[in-house]
Design a protein around this nucleic acid. Structure first.
Length: 270
DNA sequence: AAGGCATCCAACCGCTCTCGA
DNA sequence: ATCGAGAGCGGTTGGATGCCT
């Protein structure tokens, strides 16, 4: 029993692709476009599984792929996105034009993990591995804590307007800014981004906390423009002195709606 | 020079999700 | 509401290559 195979394995090639196979695939997709991967191999005259063709095209043959090493900016962006999204490689790749999920995943496992570990940061939790010592290194004195939680939300009703925004009906993506109360009380200091996964009701339930989320991208309680914190480009905001930042904010960047919930649909970049 | 070890990354595998019948 | 096919995703594997002793 078990699942039916995705293709007739007995008559398919496996392993590395030859130049001829690549050429056939490129020619076919140029002529007919992407899609119908299951029937593509036969139509293109390839002895390959459709999945294999799709992977080869997406990860290697696509003309818009960026080749070469990752830049320092890309490194930092991947780290920050991973801290927000976890191992959602396709979502992360969607924010890095010309990079594929597979490429980023490989790069993460081979380079960035090590890089974070050498900084004393746990690549899974993005928290320091050895307590205050490492935290002191990663926390700048001018940076106010930004606590972001992607939360499973047991209290969210299915008919709530926010329910539709929940990816796979599991996460609301409610985001809180500022340290948790217990952390404030205990004097806990976290790095730039506290990315602990935890559960909390949506913003409209916790009226006290998310007022700042209604500002359309400007993070009032945090003193740092999110765009600046990502280091995406020079930002002329003066959020440190309390004035407005005219640039896109955290929510817009990640596809958040004005209610402060993460809408995964807008994160997809097809 | 050669063998062992580490690293990189393309490709595979199995699972989940989506959509149409 | 259910089911099956197709597509997509993330984890893992294994061959190629480079480095070290």
């Amino acid at each position: 029993m078990g699942r039916s195979p995705c293709c007739e394995k007995a008559h398919t090639n496996k392993g590395a692709w030859t130049k001829e196979e690549d050429d056939r695939l490129i020619a076919y997709i140029k002529a007919h476009g992407e899609g119908c991967w299951r029937s593509l191999p036969k139509a293109a005259g390839l002895l390959r599984c459709g999945k294999s063709c799709r992977l080869r095209w997406i990860n290697y043959l696509r003309p818009d792929l960026k080749r070469g090493n990752f830049t320092e900016e890309e490194d930092e962006l991947i780290i920050k996105l991973h801290s927000l999204l976890g191992n959602k490689w396709s979502l992360i790749a969607g924010r890095l034009p010309g990079r594929t999920d597979n490429e980023i995943k490989n790069y993460w496992n081979t380079h960035i993990k090590r890089k974070l570990l050498s900084r004393g940061i746990d690549p899974v939790t993005h928290r320091s591995l050895n307590g205050a010592e490492a935290e002191a290194e990663t926390t700048t004195p001018t940076t106010t804590t930004t606590s972001i939680s992607f939360v499973a939300n047991p209290k969210l009703e299915p008919d709530s307007p926010d329910h539709n925004l929940m990816p796979n009906r599991l996460f609301s993506g409610a985001i809180e800014f500022g340290p948790k109360s217990e952390e404030r009380n205990s004097g806990y200091r976290c790095p730039d981004l506290n990315l602990e996964l935890r559960i909390s009701p949506p913003s409209h339930i916790h009226q006290k906390q998310p007022e700042q989320l209604k500002t359309g991208g400007r993070i009032v309680n945090s003193t740092t423009c999110f765009k600046c914190s990502f280091g995406l480009q020079n930002c002329d905001c003066n959020t440190f002195d309390g004035s407005e930042c005219s640039n896109i904010g955290f929510h817009d960047f990640l596809g958040l709606r004005s209610n402060g919930h993460l809408d995964y649909r807008t994160l997809e970049m097809k």
